[in-house]
């Protein structure tokens, strides 16, 4: 098949053409003009993002003090007793369901569901119109979880009863 005469391309000699896949395999590579150099384009953006984050943390730390309650006392439970805010949704569920459900099955199912997501959702499309089921399911879950978190964090007062946050504030950070 090979041309009997060696081809000269530029100043290189073509010795042979080998069938097979490109080094990157089946993956499609973007065209050169769709890409940019990381240095400086991405590096400078990351540097700015890092600065913004640091400034935000410094500002918050300057104006708001971290809470410190009384020393731990095993004989007095504060009323209401609040979990850290990221577990507020779980605590809210714990007040509604048996602990095996709310404390073990639900968080277990959420973690396992997240881990399994890319293996359940095999739809290759990135077009939001073509993945409405996945987007809807995820959005419903997020909205529910955020609502439960806010309820547990702000809307629960003494004995875990309902309060309005603008009347009594019970959130703990």
């Amino acid at each position: 098949m090979l041309d009997p005469d060696p081809r000269i391309i530029g100043d290189k000699r073509l010795l042979g053409v080998v069938p097979g896949k490109p080094p990157i395999g089946d993956r499609k590579q973007p065209a050169e003009e769709d890409t940019v150099m990381v240095w400086p384009n991405l590096l400078v953006r990351h540097a700015v993002a890092a600065l913004v984050v640091i400034v935000i943390v410094v500002l918050i730390a300057m104006f708001f003090d971290a809470p410190l309650r009384e020393i731990a006392n095993p004989t007095i439970t504060p009323n209401p007793e609040k979990a850290p805010w990221y577990f507020a949704a779980l605590q809210e569920l714990l007040a509604l369901f048996h602990p095996l459900v709310a404390g073990v099955l639900v968080p277990g199912a959420i973690i396992m569901g997240l881990v399994a997501l890319p293996y359940i959702d095999r739809n290759p499309s990135l077009d939001p119109r073509k993945r409405q089921i996945a987007r809807t399911a995820f959005t419903v879950f997020m909205v529910l979880w955020i609502a439960l978190t806010l309820i547990g964090f702000m809307f629960r007062g003494e004995n875990w009863s309902w309060v309005w946050p603008w009347e009594e504030w019970h959130g703990e950070l």
Binding site: P67, E70, A72, N73, K82, A83, P84, F87, L90, G103
Partner: peptide, 29 residues
């Protein structure tokens, strides 16, 4: 990481949040 750090100040907030958090684990079959 956040949850383990929560106990370290050893105040009421920390003590009881961790009491409740670890009691949840006891319900694992």
């Amino acid at each position: 990481l956040s949850f383990t750090g929560y106990l370290l100040p050893w105040d009421q907030l920390a003590y009881w949040a961790v009491t409740v958090g670890t009691a949840m684990a006891a319900y694992v079959p």
